[in-house]
Design a protein around this nucleic acid. Structure first.
Length: 471
RNA sequence: GCUCCCUUCGUCUAGUGGUUAGGACGCUGGCCUCUCACGUCGGUAACAGGGGUUCAAAUCCCCUAGGGAGCGCCA
């Protein structure tokens, strides 16, 4: 049997991380077993579905690199098929028309709730034989007795009593099919062998199996993956920060970091933490997925992101970094090669946004000194070191302006002053970077360039002189 | 309320009857060092509770508690 999985989001918003993980698991399972991964857009809710959401979902999938083999299919294009199936069910007496007004259903429900019963439709229209030309919905006639057994790949065996289930609406009064019907027909028509979805669908599963059986089909295998919660254990929502996959991209995360983080939420392979998409395909299997919900932990995502930034090809990172530099008003083509900046900085940032921030000094003069750094390093005592450094650096030819030569030059300056390297490097660093943290001083000066370095040393000396005047 | 699901360090997890309960993130101490970061060595911290079964239980069974989902003419 060929494995066929599907990801079936409803286009009522962006692709969020929970959906992305479900998509990832479906993708991995299909790839692992040499199967087919189908993308289907569940847009039967005409009120809430939008084209913008469809685009947002496709954009998120593309960014993550989760490619599908078939689709995207749109349920709105398959209404004729659903209606044919519904008519077939009516014809066979497995579904019936219902014209119960909303008020009747509401009263029924209230009474049941008051009696502490589970609210459910009472089958009032089962034998009323409503004419087809009157306004009506269509309900599936659920079996009254027996049980439905779901052998879930993640949960194990789950048994439902049919008397817990009621006759659900499969076609609305406006003629549109409902979710439980269209899902069943699509999974059947598309030959889906494994339904991998969120565990909020567990309770729908027995209904869907009953419809499938009424249609003479054997159900697929099911795997219900647990939810993702926020840092605080509550359901993940906007207030936990980004939930949209695209927002993670914009905040400077690498797709491989998000993917790696998501796959480890509910799945593991021994003690291993780092997985490329190919390695996931090789090692993943759905029956190893945890049953319990897990909390999204941004700190760990940040760690993975830093790991991937650090070990990625500098040229690629430079390419991805460029737009973030642009947001800071910097054109990286004016000045040092951005790739060289990445090489110098890539172990120092957890996101591309942060990488851009700590690299801005290479391309433009900063406005103000970091207060603590200036207080500690731009002092009268540091002035001689800065002065001597400036003298030595001025003498360096442009072709000698490289990290090694710069570092050796400054070591000589320190030696001449009878000071440790730190007494020279730190004031110089604050003078040139504005902060007390940067790559090695030689690399830092090389990237900044001779002209800007000397200019900024002059400015720092001025700052120190100003202190004396004020004090 | 009813039905279904879940429960190992703060978080992600390993563990399938016998382990000093392992790893990772975070936090933290040391080393490296011109700063920061990286790297590296160490520390911190968990089997929800209670009953069984067993020579032996995080692992099997039952109960309780806590958390979650569903109970739509939403998906």
């Amino acid at each position: 049997m060929t494995v066929r999985t599907r990801f079936a989001p409803s286009p009522t918003g962006y692709l969020h991380v929970g959906g992305a993980r479900t998509a990832l698991f479906s993708y991995l399972f299909a790839r692992k077993h040499g199967g087919v991964f189908v993308l289907r857009i569940e847009d039967t809710d005409l009120e809430r579905s939008t084209a913008a959401s469809v685009n947002a979902i496709l954009e998120g999938m593309a960014w993550l690199g989760l490619s599908w083999d078939e689709g995207p299919f749109f349920q709105t294009e398959r209404f004729d098929r659903y209606n044919a199936v519904i008519d077939e069910l009516i014809g066979k007496g497995l579904a019936y028309r219902c014209d119960c007004p909303k008020e009747r259903i509401d009263t029924l429900r209230e009474g049941q709730m008051a009696r502490k019963e589970k609210p459910r439709y009472d089958g009032h229209c089962r034998h009323r034989d409503i004419p087809a030309d009157r306004p009506h919905a269509v309900r599936f006639r659920n079996p009254d007795e027996g049980v439905v057994v779901v052998d879930d790949l993640i949960r194990g065996r789950i048994v439902f009593n049919n008397d817990e289930l009621d006759d659900l609406v499969i076609r609305r009064t406006d003629g549109s099919p409902t979710y439980n019907l269209s899902v069943v027909v699509d999974d059947m028509d598309m030959g889906i062998s494994h339904v991998i979805r969120g565990d909020d669908h567990i309770n729908n599963t027995p209904r869907q199996i009953n419809i499938l059986r009424a249609l003479g089909q054997e159900p697929p295998r099911y795997a219900h993956v647990p939810m993702i919660l926020g840092d605080d254990g509550a359901r993940l929502s906007k207030r936990h920060g980004a939930v949209s996959v695209i927002a993670y991209r914009d905040e400077g995360y690498l797709p491989e970091a998000l993917l790696n983080y998501l796959v480890r939420l509910g799945w593991s392979h021994g003690d291993r933490e780092i997985f490329s998409l190919d390695e996931m395909v090789e090692l993943f299997d759905i029956d190893q997925v945890n049953k319990a919900a897990s909390s999204f932990n941004t700190d760990k995502l940040l760690w993975l992101n830093q790991h991937y930034i650090q070990h990625a090809d500098p040229q690629r990172i430079a390419h991805l970094l460029s737009p973030h530099m642009g947001r800071l008003g910097i054109d990286p083509s004016q000045g040092a090669d951005l790739k060289d900046v990445v090489v110098a900085q890539q172990a120092r940032a957890k996101t591309l946004v942060e990488l851009a921030q700590i690299s801005a000094f290479v391309y433009q003069d900063f406005d103000t000194y970091d207060e603590a750094a200036a207080r500690k390093h731009l002092t009268a005592a540091a002035a001689p070191a800065l002065g001597r450094a400036r003298e030595a650096l001025e003498l360096l030819a442009l072709e000698d302006w490289d990290a090694d030569t710069l570092e050796r030059t400054l070591e000589q300056v320190a030696l001449g002053l009878g000071e440790k390297m730190g007494k020279v490097a730190q004031p110089l660093r604050v003078a040139v970077v504005g902060r007390a943290a940067s790559p090695g001083i030689g690399v830092t000066l090389e990237l900044v360039g001779k002209e800007a370095t000397l200019r900024r040393i002059g400015r720092a000396l001025g700052h120190i002189a100003g202190l004396g005047a004020a004090g």
